[in-house]
Computed example of a mutant assay.
Amino acid sequence: MGDERQEELARRAATGDRAALNDLLAAIRPQVLRRCARFLPCFQDAEEACQDVLLQVARRIERFEGRSLFSTWLHVVVANSARQTYRTLKRRAVEEAHDLTPLDRPDPRTTSVIAGSRLDFLDALERLEARRPDLVAPIVLRDVCQLDYNEIAEHLGIPVGTVKSRIHQGRSDLREYLFQGA
């Protein structure tokens, strides 16, 4: 589906058109799943986050005012949902770890390097958010969602120079978090 068609469906859905909402959800599902998979290395986790995004879009579409592109609004919903899914999974894993015997624990030598680096990145984002929450959204929108600086500035309501500055500072802090143990 073309971007213009998707934007039109989003505008109609925001005004209460249920058929447009159903068409929109069906159309965006594949791209939402791909974007969630950028954050979450396990396919089932990405699917869980995808379902959460679709549910949030359905519940919150009336909040989409059309000031920015729907695709930009959707990027933010995807990023927030995937990060929340990761936090939930991490919390569950900590709770379940108390019940595991040492032999039940995964062998780090068989864990995917890509999966491990994604999880390290998500952990570093959590640490950054605890210290400097204003740096997280620009980093996620630029480096994960691959939005350009102008789109990020428009979505966040801040000047492009501030976006660039926050991305630079955030990347610097993330590097520090990622390579502390190395």
Score class of each variant (00 low, 15 high):
F64C: 04
T88S: 11
Q44A: 15
E65G: 15
C42G: 07
L33K: 12
L21W: 03
E65C: 10
T15C: 09
N22K: 12
L74N: 01
D3C: 04
Y86D: 04
F39V: 02
T85V: 11
N80R: 15
L89S: 04
A46P: 03
S68C: 14
G16E: 00
M1F: 10
A46V: 09
A27Q: 09
E7K: 03
V76Y: 14
A19I: 10
L89A: 10
I28V: 15
A37L: 01
F64W: 08
A14C: 05
R35W: 00
P41E: 03
D23Q: 15
R34K: 14
L69D: 09
L25K: 07
N80Y: 04
A27R: 07
A20T: 07
L9V: 05
E7T: 08
R87A: 11
R11W: 06
A27G: 06
L74R: 12
D17V: 06
L24F: 07
A46K: 05
A82I: 08
N80A: 09
V78A: 06
L9C: 03
A14P: 07
E62W: 02
A82L: 06
E4Q: 12
V57Q: 06
T15S: 13
A14V: 07
D52S: 13
H75T: 11
L69S: 13
Q84Y: 07
Q44Y: 10
L40C: 00
A13P: 06
A19P: 00
M1E: 03
L74P: 05
R29S: 06
N80K: 10
T88N: 10
V53F: 02
L24Q: 08
A26Q: 12
C36P: 04
F39K: 01
L25M: 04
R87V: 09
R59L: 12
T88K: 12
D23I: 06
Q84T: 13
T72K: 05
R63E: 12
L33A: 11
G66L: 05
Q6I: 15
R18S: 12
Q6A: 08
Q6K: 11
F70I: 04
I28T: 03
G16Q: 01
C36T: 13
D45N: 08
I28Q: 02
D52Q: 10
Q56A: 13
R11A: 05
A13W: 05
R35L: 09
G16A: 06
E7S: 08
Q44W: 07
Q84A: 14
N22M: 08
L55A: 13
R60S: 11
Q31A: 14
Q31H: 11
E7Y: 08
S81R: 10
L54C: 02
T88W: 02
Q6Y: 01
